[in-house]
Write a protein that binds this DNA or RNA. Structure first.
Lengths: 200, 200
DNA sequence: ACCTGAACACCGTTCAAGT
DNA sequence: ACCTGAACACCGTTCAAGT
């Protein structure tokens, strides 16, 4: 039985250590983008980062922990963008607001299509074990708030559940359509979300 | 650069060979169900199948080819169930028909929840390389036919695209809700599908 | 304290030897 | 022809030695 510990081994305090973690994460990002999952191995990441393999394992207890750190980092960027967008759409009608949120999510993913797709895949592979991450919960919360604000316009029986389902649906559509023209994809995502929310 | 050849190495003609392939696929299924992806390795599969590792590689050029064969097998079962269900719903109203198809898909997945989830994940991981499989195309075709029959009741601009999106959505929802009570899940899948199809 | 990298273990795959 | 399994290569991870 494998232990599933994806927490970073230590929060590095010393300046050099902070830098090393940054190097490692940057290297991991580059390796994943350029060589995809097949080329993603810890020895290669350490090499690209310019640190020894031993140092990598001082900060990340295993390869999956490194992947989880990347997922966290990416999701933090997304939650910031989504929260900002959600605030801006305050008084606008549902359809328009959804369209803007969808656009943010799609743009976020299309900034680094290969990487985002891989990280979503890895998140699914790891999710049964991993506790829902801080940033994943933040995204969920932002979406629940958004749905509450539009409570009168939607027909879902349970807002929590709806938020989860919508996140699942949007991720799936966006990942399955990597490379699709942004506007077309936006319209289909909008259809899926509002269709789900307003079904009666 | 890796070659991506997922085709079985040979279609076994001799009776002993046919049996061996069956043993190997059954063993792979058991290993995946019991030990999940972490325990799924070719040496273990060969051992459980009672054949030598060399024999496994005579029929499958690599591990992914073995996985693809499992995916194919599972999807063939699903396409049969779906086609049958689609025929039975012939003259019924859209919502009811969708509910029945959704039920078939959910039951199919919940028969072996762990296995189905893993195979869906692996399918995503492999899909950029792999040609869309025969059975995946069959499922797509069945769904397109179904949508054509209800053309007047749905608002999607493109039936092909809609079929793809719906498959993506249903898989994602079902995989994300492994272990959820069947009836609740059915209602949410129905909402997602009909919401998408009838959005205006 | 922290870094290093040789070494170990595990697993995908091959191929010389056996039938 | 087909099967076998020891052996090789690659990669995740550790740990003794160095600073």
């Amino acid at each position: 039985m494998k232990k599933a510990n994806y927490k970073p081994r230590k929060r590095p305090q010393q300046p050099r250590s902070v830098k090393m973690v940054t190097w490692i994460l940057d290297a991991a990002t580059r390796v994943l983008e350029k060589e995809s999952l097949e080329g993603f191995n810890t020895n290669r990441v350490a090499e690209v980062a310019g640190v020894s393999i031993g140092s990598l394992y001082q900060y990340f207890p295993n390869k999956d922990a490194l992947t989880v750190a990347l997922i966290e980092k990416t999701q933090q960027e997304l939650v910031i963008a989504l929260t900002k967008a959600a605030e801006l759409t305050h008084a606008k009608p549902l359809a328009e607001s959804v369209r803007e949120l969808a656009r943010v999510a799609i743009i976020h993913q299309q900034t680094r299509p290969r990487l985002s797709r891989i990280l979503d895949l890895e998140e699914q592979r790891l999710s049964p074990e991993a506790v829902l991450s801080r940033s994943a919960r933040a995204i969920q919360t932002t979406l629940v708030d958004f749905l509450q604000q539009h409570r009168k316009d939607i027909t879902v029986p349970n807002v929590q559940e709806a938020a989860t389902d919508i996140l699942t649906i949007v991720k799936a559509l966006v990942d399955a359509n990597t490379g699709e023209v942004s506007e077309k994809l936006e319209r289909r995502v909008e259809r899926a979300i509002i269709g789900y929310l307003c079904y009666s």
